[in-house]
Design a protein around this nucleic acid. Structure first.
Lengths: 193, 193
DNA sequence: TATTGTTATACTCTATAACTATA
DNA sequence: TATAGTTATAGAGTATAACAATA
């Protein structure tokens, strides 16, 4: 989440000329704006004569990794601001939320679910515990494991935090219709799940 | 891109029950699989009785930031492997690609376009230059600025690197139809552009 | 005065190896 | 032997402040 000094973004807004054809399900309209003078997208463009004012990043914009990362960072930037009052960063939030919705979950399960590494979770858990947001209870079946539970204080915090997160996300995706938002979530999950 | 020791991922594949309605454009089908017994998505679910085996992350899956980040990391993980032979990490790749497509682009422009901070670009540029992949030439109009150009060696490298990146991306998005892929790119850009 | 590029530096995030205690 | 949790630590990534040269 790099906060820039104050750089004007010369990124051009593409006319998002996107169609699709398929089988069984209806879809969301992708171009609410009246299709503005659509510049031909260069599939293998020849370089800019000389990059004097505008910068062409049309190739990078064809890459899912690039677009997903840029979108994620854009959202996370606002997330950090809005969730700072709760003392929660994205990973803290994910961990607290998962514990809240899965009482007794173990560190091992958290790592697998959220794709974290065990050593990096240790300090995080200790911090949440020392803040009184979670409790560690012995695991019923496995003597090695420890069950994690949100305290009433932690639960109350997360009700607010999740509400804030959801609101912020709706703001950040304001250019999307609810249908498009739903579509986007489902398509992203097809990549990483 | 956290590489796990070898954890079985208890993440459940959602039935991606996604519909959409809208106005002017056709869309891609979101559910190629024969709609499998669809579990009710909990909008504000009550916690798992006890997280013994499976972990419920349905709330996080409603967050764009979470999904975008997970998808991005999933792609970047493979990106790192496949682009390692070229000595390029994601940011190096973005910078080289942008220079290649925009001869004479300045550091300042790169920062604005790729959302990087100037101090972090310095070492990166120096590294690319010392590898003989780019050249720095005086800017025609501005004595302070330096124009960046890809050398023939750098150009040749990037032809291969971009081909590799595009291939890897198609692999990672194999569960998506071309139409869905196009849709996804356009929707992501609506968030960060 | 404002901007480009740079240095130095601090802070955070992520990754690896190795240990312990339980199974 | 394998796994859950932990420790210590290294490395990469990202951030801020301040400076010189040019506009």
């Amino acid at each position: 989440m790099p906060r820039q000094p104050a750089p004007p973004r010369p990124l051009k807004t593409p006319g998002s000329e996107v169609t699709a054809s398929g089988a069984s399900v209806q879809q969301a309209p992708l171009d609410p704006q009246p299709a503005k003078a659509r510049r031909a997208r260069a599939p293998r463009a020849k370089p800019n004569a000389l990059a004097l004012d505008t910068v062409d990043s049309s190739y990078l914009q064809t890459l899912m990794g690039y677009n997903a990362r840029r979108a994620a960072l854009s959202i996370i930037e606002l997330f950090l601001e809005r969730l700072a009052p709760y003392g929660l960063k994205p990973v803290d939030f994910s961990v607290m939320s998962t514990i809240g919705h899965n009482p007794g979950v173990t560190s091992r399960q958290l790592c697998a679910t959220l794709n974290l590494l065990p050593p990096n979770l240790v300090g995080l858990i200790q911090s949440l515990e020392s803040r009184g947001l979670i409790e560690r209870k012995p695991h019923p079946h496995d003597g090695r494991a420890v069950g994690l539970h949100a305290t009433p204080k932690g639960q109350a915090l997360m009700v607010q935090a999740e509400r804030t997160a959801t609101e912020l996300e709706i703001e950040k995706t304001a250019k999307l219709t609810p249908a498009q938002r739903k579509t986007l979530l489902a398509l992203l999950q097809k990549i990483y799940l």
